[in-house]
């Protein structure tokens, strides 16, 4: 016997969480785009998505974040540190890949210097994932050794029932257990079968890829030039990636006042590494693409023990020139030994 949450109880569930002080976020469709947005009722949610176009990362590491507000006076400069809103949030209907993305980024943001902006939001959020019942051509979680039913980064995991009436509920962290304690009457004992998890075929041999990347002589291989030839150098793969975390710090304002902001930045941009002198360590698109792949599947692993990819496939899904991690790693995987 397991506990289930019925779909028709979702409105009550949202209300109960709101009563317990949570804002509830879920996949929504708005203005021709799907993303995570605040919801008031179940009908606000978009359940039919394999994956929203935007990641859940947006809500932990926003595209632009005010850090410091400053005023420049004649005599003095006043500055005030700005902090993220201190509110409790439930993220409902997160896909396992997006949830993994958060867990993957935690060690980076906590590496010796703790990024308060990230952790304040992390500490105040409960992640309720829904195991996938569908995968599209671009999904690749299994290729990076995760799965459509991975509980990495999740606090509560829901498995859709085969009859579509609701979800089997399982708390996978203390925070998740606490969240479920706010809705005891909405959960019922039941042994309905759950819907089958989709088979996502492995698209490349990750071990082989990592081995190839780790080999020093491949760093300057012609492979990088060939594979990235059509890259136009936009940042959409990095900005829609659940694990990409690079940013820029910019002062924005006028002569008298302004705000120092932390903005998303992308290793695909040529200015990303450009020195003031004009020297640019990564001055071609191929070196930038190599950086992205190496960072995800070699450097990050060396520092934090995990690959910086959760296999959501967004990089390929929305690339204007049909590139992406899958193609590159497949190509590496297919290289003759």
């Amino acid at each position: 016997m397991t506990r289930i949450l019925l779909r028709n109880k979702l409105d009550d569930c949202i209300a109960a969480w709101q009563k317990a002080g949570f804002s509830v976020f879920a996949p929504v469709r708005q203005h021709e785009m799907s993303s995570f947005g605040e919801v008031q009722k179940a009908s606000d949610m978009a359940f039919d998505l394999v994956l929203p176009e935007r990641t859940i990362k947006d809500h932990f590491f926003p595209q632009t974040e005010p850090l410091i507000k400053y005023k420049i006076g004649k005599q003095q400069i006043d500055s005030e540190t700005m902090t993220p809103p201190d509110r409790k949030r439930v993220f409902f209907g997160v896909r396992p890949c997006d949830a993994s993305g958060l867990a993957i980024d935690d060690p980076l943001f906590g590496w010796d210097y703790k990024d308060d902006y990230w952790f304040r939001r992390r500490d105040n959020s409960v992640i309720v994932t829904i195991v996938c019942t569908e995968a599209d051509d671009f999904c690749m979680c299994t290729s990076v050794k995760l799965s459509p039913e991975s509980d990495k980064g999740a606090d509560v995991m829901l498995r859709p029932l085969a009859n579509g009436a609701g979800w089997q509920v399982e708390a996978v962290s203390e925070r998740g257990t606490a969240l479920l304690e706010t809705i005891p009457s909405l959960l019922q004992e039941n042994s309905e079968p759950t819907a089958p998890v989709p088979q996502v075929a492995e698209k490349f041999d990750l071990e082989k890829v990592m081995e190839w990347l780790a080999s020093k002589e491949n760093f300057e291989s012609q492979f990088w030039k060939d594979i990235s030839l059509r890259c136009v150098g936009c940042g959409s793969c990095t900005f829609l990636c659940p694990t990409c975390h690079c940013f820029d710090i910019q002062d924005e304002g006028d002569t008298y006042a302004g705000i120092r902001r932390k903005n998303w930045d992308s290793c695909s941009f040529s200015l990303f590494t450009m020195h003031t002198s004009g020297h640019n360590p990564r001055n071609t698109q191929s070196t930038r693409w190599r950086q992205r792949i190496m960072h995800k599947f070699n450097y990050y692993r060396g520092k934090f023990g995990v690959n910086s990819c959760s296999g959501c496939g967004r990089c390929t899904r929305q690339c204007p020139v049909d590139m992406g991690i899958t193609e590159t790693l497949q190509a590496i995987s297919n290289l003759p030994r």
């Binding site: 590496w111 975390h245 710090i249 930045d265």
Partner: peptide
């Protein structure tokens, strides 16, 4: 190198 954060986060 070019730096923005100085503390191992910004990735450049």
């Amino acid at each position: 190198n070019r730096m923005k954060c100085g503390v191992g986060k910004c990735g450049r």
